[in-house]
Design a protein around this nucleic acid. Structure first.
Lengths: 263, 263
DNA sequence: ATTATAAGTATCATAATATGATACGTCAAC
DNA sequence: GTTGACGTATCATATTATGATACTTATAAT
């Protein structure tokens, strides 16, 4: 087995991380054999690595079924993340106010490669489970948050993203036509916000307003998800959007100092 | 250097995890040197491990300051955790209803060794930052959630916990006297809920109602934090507690099937 | 009941891989 | 201009991870 860049790359650590990544929404509890299969590591390696992760408190082990599960340590990592991300501390109180004010679900999303990731979620209504938990990554092109951010990027970069970033048909109404997405983003660049309908789940409307960094590029967005059964595009623009934008604009200025050089 | 249990323990992986754990609320961004210092690993090892974590996307690196930060992957781990914990899916919609109903901050806490950990938080009011984010661990004896859970434990075990579990004076009014805590827990065992005041932060009152597992032991609690400026103990018991208990009781039954053998 | 299959656990000789000492480059402070 | 602190790169050595093998349980099939 060849190493990636030899001497300053520790293979065993990387393999251990493979085990951690084997757990996701479809794989919540894994046996040793499943773990081996999913990681492509052999039985012995899996055994040792899983045991190490267990001993170190990263994996819980059911003593009767012998299966592994993410431990509470996985939540502590989110805790550490929150402190390390300067945006969160700035945004949180404002997001709380906003969600109370609107009475609708408010999210904070950041750009993460060609995806967006929800870093904070304040659910106000019953929704599907995945919409209530943080850390969810979605293709940027299919989300209002992603489009609102992309709209602030330099023309060339934006073009490239629209052409190459991934799109996954989550619902029958997910927009697969990139030209259509391009025009949606163009609108967003003009208006300063983005609205999307039924991209991730049917009858869901998302509105997003970008949070702009020191260089004029958005790196995050405040987003609001509402039901198409109770809201129309017009009422969203009239009732939700102004407050949403106020919030996003109130967060942005704090970052003309911060931020620089993070990849 | 001796190994912990030799052949099924991978030292390099454990060391890598040490690096991850070096990040916390007081250490949000670490240089190579700081990382080495905090982990006790030498310069070379730190270099290699940090580089591996960077390459594998677990650490972001600021190309100008050369410092490391937790990456978005840390949030994805929370995402995976949420799916794997069967409690969350059951509890989330009920917690949302409760927080909307009460208009006050609602938390879901689980027992984690001698601490409690907040696994879900629905902030409704502005509070201090740490109270808004998940993954926070607090000494069980000093929290309403911890006490309400402990109250459901068998006498002997409860006794032992009260004598040995850690207490940290977070505020001047944190109860340090274990006898006092014992009587608080005794009350809780009688009443089925726990109230604490000013344990973690001044002028904060916490109420908690336990979520009981198949064996009669609580493993989680629904908790509500309110300000002592606007609430009295009496009004909490009258207005908040009933709904809190309803919620906790509605969640419990779902677990008389689940759960068994997890350490 | 008996056998077969699969999964978890434990051991061990081998060599591959992590180790940390060393040296070089860069930047800031003095 | 010198010093020191820090990040980076290289390399010979042996420590440490490897994976084949065998043992032990559990579950399913005959």
């Amino acid at each position: 087995m060849k190493t990636k860049q030899d001497t300053l790359y520790v293979g065993s650590l990387a393999k251990g991380l493979r085990l951690l990544r084997a757990f996701d929404e479809g794989h919540t509890e894994l046996s040793l054999a499943e773990l081996a299969q999913r990681t492509g590591l052999d039985k012995s390696a899996t055994q040792r690595l899983a045991n190490t992760l267990h001993v170190e408190g990263m994996l819980d082990k059911n003593s009767v079924t012998r299966r592994f599960r993410p431990s509470h340590a996985w939540l502590q990592m989110a805790y550490a993340y929150y402190w390390s991300d300067p945006l969160i501390g700035q945004a949180m109180p404002k997001l709380i106010s906003l969600s109370q004010d609107l009475g609708e679900t408010v999210n904070l999303a950041e750009i993460s490669g060609d995806h967006i990731i929800y870093v904070s979620r304040l659910p106000c209504k019953r929704t599907y489970f995945a919409a209530t938990i943080i850390g969810r990554r979605l293709p940027a092109l299919s989300t209002s948050a992603g489009r609102s951010m992309l709209a602030t990027f330099p023309e060339e970069e934006r073009q490239k993203a629209i052409e190459t970033w991934p799109i996954i048909p989550f619902t029958p109404s997910t927009t697969l036509d990139r030209a259509q997405i391009a025009s949606s983003i163009k609108e967003s660049a003009r208006d300063g916000y983005a609205i999307s309908t039924g991209q991730m789940i049917l009858n869901e409307i998302g509105v997003a307003s970008p949070i702009i960094g020191h260089d004029g590029r958005a790196f995050a967005a405040v987003q609001c998800s509402v039901s198409a059964h109770t809201w129309t595009r017009e009422r969203i623009v009239a009732d939700i959007l102004p407050k949403l934008q106020d919030t996003a604009n109130a967060i942005s200025p704090a970052f003309h100092a911060h931020h620089a050089g993070w990849d």
